[in-house]
Design a binder for these strands. Structure first.
Lengths: 163, 163
DNA sequence: GTGCTGGCTATGACCAACCTAAGCCAGCCT
DNA sequence: AGGCTGGCTTAGGTTGGTCATAGCCAGCAC
């Protein structure tokens, strides 16, 4: 059980290339901090207002402001002014599709923490609304097979005409 | 399209509880830094030696040493001394099962970065070795359904007899 | 106008994550 | 013995994420 991926094509051997343009590294430049991840968690939980983010994530207001600004700049959240009748104008932050697509990352983190860092598997579970079954983040191929780490192959992307 | 999860049971409304024991937050305390994520990436790519980690991740030796030590302490990697005939004793770092189970997190990060931060979808792809189809991290329920963010329900975990 | 509330910004300080440059030690090779 | 290599450690400094405290401004409510 080595748990390592198989490298193919010009990726083998590993010593012969460097991971420039690595999409993992790039993603981590957009959401690198704990506070960014937790703000996204809150956004999925339905939080929209400044004060609520600060309080529910447990971070200070300056950090909340900085993080929300960054996430909006990177297009993961969008800020929107709204007003309820008889109320002053408010601001709310909502997930964009771009931001919402980070959900598998959060679910995978949640899953791992529940399994390895909490004796009871964590305080909450995710369920499929339609059927009530527990939900998890897993690796699947386009043909629908469940894929284990040892069945994974890392390959250079085929270049398209526009490359 | 709100992208938010549905909260059920005592989780509703959101204002009534705090996310203590949050497994996402816990996981981020184990792997919080960019360098930790990238060292794990390298471990999946088959890197085992100190110098290779430092060079391939692109971080300095002191950071490499600190991060490897932490990851070993948290049980994601294990250090092992080995010797090839006629060679001096070497050290190698290998993923444990605990560490290997973070693969969905890395794949999900890779996927997102390839989709949103690289015009060509990223330099590499993951394929299923058996059938050659591309692999992705996705949300599925135990009944095998693909689950969208809007079909997700966050529920308190049912307590077991040992709780 | 005065006060209250929501959504911030400003300031100053701390600590953690990183860097570069240098040094150290064990073990093998000559 | 002397040198090289792998796997570190130490020293000193920078950047960036965090905090606590305080202040600011707009828009209602009175």
């Amino acid at each position: 059980m080595s748990h390592t991926l198989r490298l193919t094509g010009r990726l083998e051997p590993r010593g012969a290339w460097t991971a420039e343009r690595c999409p993992i590294a790039r993603t981590l430049q957009v959401v690198s901090t704990r506070s960014a991840f937790l703000i996204l968690r809150e956004a999925f939980y339905g939080t929209t207002r400044f004060d609520d983010f600060a309080e529910r994530v447990g971070i200070s207001e300056p950090v909340t402001a900085a993080r929300l600004r960054e996430l909006v700049e990177h297009g993961l959240l969008e800020r929107e002014d709204y007003r309820e009748p008889g109320q002053r104008t408010r601001r709310q932050y909502r997930l964009t599709s771009r931001g919402a697509e980070l959900l598998p990352v959060l679910v995978a983190l949640m899953q791992w923490g529940g399994r390895w860092l909490d004796e009871h598997g964590g305080p909450v579970t995710l369920l499929h609304r339609e059927c009530g079954e527990p939900v998890s983040a897993e690796l699947r191929c386009a043909a629908g097979h469940h894929v284990d780490d040892e069945e994974l192959e890392l390959a250079p992307r085929r270049r398209t005409a526009t490359d």
